[in-house]
Design a protein around this nucleic acid. Sequence first.
RNA 1: GCCUGGAUGGCGGAAUUGGUAGACGCAAGGGACUUAAAAUCCCUCGGUCGCAAGGCCAUGCCGGUUCGAUUCCGGCUCCAGGCACCA
Length: 790
Amino acid sequence: MTEYLPSQLEPKWQAEWDKNNAYHIPDPQIPQSPDSHKYYALVMFPYPSGNLHMGHVRNYAIGDVVARFKRMQGFDVLHPIGWDSFGMPAENAAIARNVQPDEWTSQCIARMTEQLKRLGISYDWDREVTTCKEDYYKWTQWLFLKFFNKGLAYRKQATVNWCPTCQTVLANEQAKEDKCWRCGTQVDEKPLEQWFLKITQYADRLLQDIDKLSGWPESVKTMQRNWIGKSEGLEIKFKLKTPNTELIIYTTRPDTVFGVTYMVMAPEHPMVDELTRGTEFETGVKAFREKVKHETQNERAESTGKEGAFIGAYAINPANNEEIPIWISDYVLMNYGTGAVMAVPMHDERDAEFAKVHNLPVSDAPLSNEIGAELVKRGIAKWKTNFKLRDWLISRQRYWGAPIPIVYCDKCGTVPVPEKDLPVRLPKNIKFTGTGGSPIKQALDFVNTTCPKCGGPAKRETDTMDTFICSSWYFYRYCDAKNASAPFAKDKVDHWMPVDQYIGGIEHAILHLLYSRFFAKVLKDEGLISTDEPFTNLLTQGMVVKDGAKMSKSKGNVVDPDLIIEKYGADTARLFILFAAPPEKELEWSDKGVEGSYRFLNRVWRLATENIQETSDKIQENTKSQIQRSKPLERKLHQTIKAVTEDIERFSFNTAIARMMELTNYLYEIKDDVSFIHHSDFVLRHLLILLSPFAPHMTEELWQMLGNKDSIHKQPWPKFDPELVKEDEITIVIQVNGKLRDSILVSANASEEEIKQKALANEKAKAFIDGKEIVKTILVPKKLVNIVVK
RNA sequence: GCCUGGAUGGCGGAAUUGGUAGACGCAAGGGACUUAAAAUCCCUCGGUCGCAAGGCCAUGCCGGUUCGAUUCCGGCUCCAGGCACCA
């Protein structure tokens, strides 16, 4: 008997698949034949950090099972991979190791490519996409210009986290708890002119079209709806006691206006200055502002609404003409609504909390559904739709990103770089120190340029684009990855899009998925593509954790996929990761569990190899006339085919694997019976085909050993016979008052009356019925009889 | 704080639409084989009472709906993801 040696057979098959370009899917014939059926299986492309982690393995193992399964069902499957390769870590590596980000990135990509290939994922490597390469970011810039020309890209002032010591911009991640991660200095907010994309212009469409996404998890759709945060409300002008001044607030609850007992403004509201200038409250207000100035947006949103200051001004409640005090507090945000609210302690928890802490009055005035319309009639209010969604800030004061293709000219102003001049190349050989702002500013021959309009001296934009822009369109590029004259050909994208199944981490539920939906809508409006929802079905996978915590270097609980592959093989790694938990749930890593998956593959291996050696001898011992059908074996096989197929279709890979384990256990039980010996080849072929999407190397090896010349991965997915699946006898549970008392075996075609009689006559049930009155009997077909007694 | 999820044996999980709670696997204990070990194979395995038959309890906590609730509803607790410059 041959031993199962994954370290030998896996590289062999990987080399074979590589050589034959086995998973390349050619471009479609355009016009396409009517009977072609495409399937686009997409996994979220990785950031090339240099090391594949278990989260990647999980993502790509799931994607590969789906791709292989669909291929065997006869679909033309597009299953591509690429690299989301711009971003901060490369720049940090440059600072820490004195390398150039592009070198560091290509080393990481080379290493991770090797790791991916060792997993045996069926990617079409011919369509590999790398966002930091010129042939990709040229088109990212091209798309930015589309947005710019459509009026969807604009500049306005926004603040960044600024470290005064390092003299550099910090990402939120680098400014945890308001301290610079390098030097610990208190982080400031610094205003800068930055580029935005007008995603708010698409807010209503992005919201409405969520209803079309029937293949998305409800939770993700709800998160997106809440993120867009559409609310219908009223903007109401409150007259102030100060003559000729008024304060406009926004409320979704105009019916509570009789209960308003005070007002609250955001500390940075421009009217706060006007109202306090020269008063005794001026210093108090300034002190409060100083205090909240260092709070990040997150901390502002986390505010419990306990802190605030009275500004000495009063407003008049338009509903009852009462004078009410005006306060400032950090729980009111300047960038939502009008930056001021009317406070109703009776009906709002935060208002109540604030009122309690600051001893403000509470009114139990009744709600009035009519007052909103009345205020509108009086001309002091108007209906207003607000969104929580804000425009997308895409400027990054960093080197390792796609340069924003804009030139600033003293004469002509803001000038887009003409298409023929793309790409605007990132300057090379930059020094990375981590201080002094964006490294690009050092490259004077980049910064200093000529105006594309007037030819005069001009300066380039030195900000680069948010990497979320790169990842908002990569799935179109896969459809036409080598196109040198356009980001993609429309007919190719129209053939493959939308993505039939998108698989990736739940952490992308809002930003990446919302931005990609936004891009789709703009691209469709531009006539570049035909569908405005890019992802038909979405599977959000959970994280891989160990000892209850996310795997991380600092916690020292990282499991290196390479070591697992080395010891047990990729098939075991894939099988375990799919078996240990349903895909959308968190997965607890277990070294012992991996051994269990390895044992299972060994059991299949032994069953098959023993069988190959022994079957021919055994069949000769028994004459052909003795060959008989084995109904239980056929039933078990067809039940397994049915269950595995349905489980894969609903992404229940763990139970699919469990069903294959059950079949294997069953085959071991009967392996010396004549019935198995006569059917073993047939049964084993089916088991191997069912297992092939999960363990592609081992099943291919055994398939060849069984004497097949073609690849197991080109076999059609087996179909089950519904007649053979049926059981002859079914178990009926007998309950008394909903409690299990016994179970009986009845013929599958027994009548309801017959079953009822058997239940009532049941000895164990009788013991609980005797002496009591039977109120009713409930029969659930094929399941149970419940006798209700009193 | 806000939004979205989750919680089932010693552990990972199963129960697809309200109908046998614990499939499958891991760990543990016992046994077989072996000079021995590894590997493999067989048996037991939620708690509790009982010699046994069997009973009772049990799906994070409290309550409700129902003949029947892991599943539906209300109220909590704890954990996780996201919160717009990590990707």
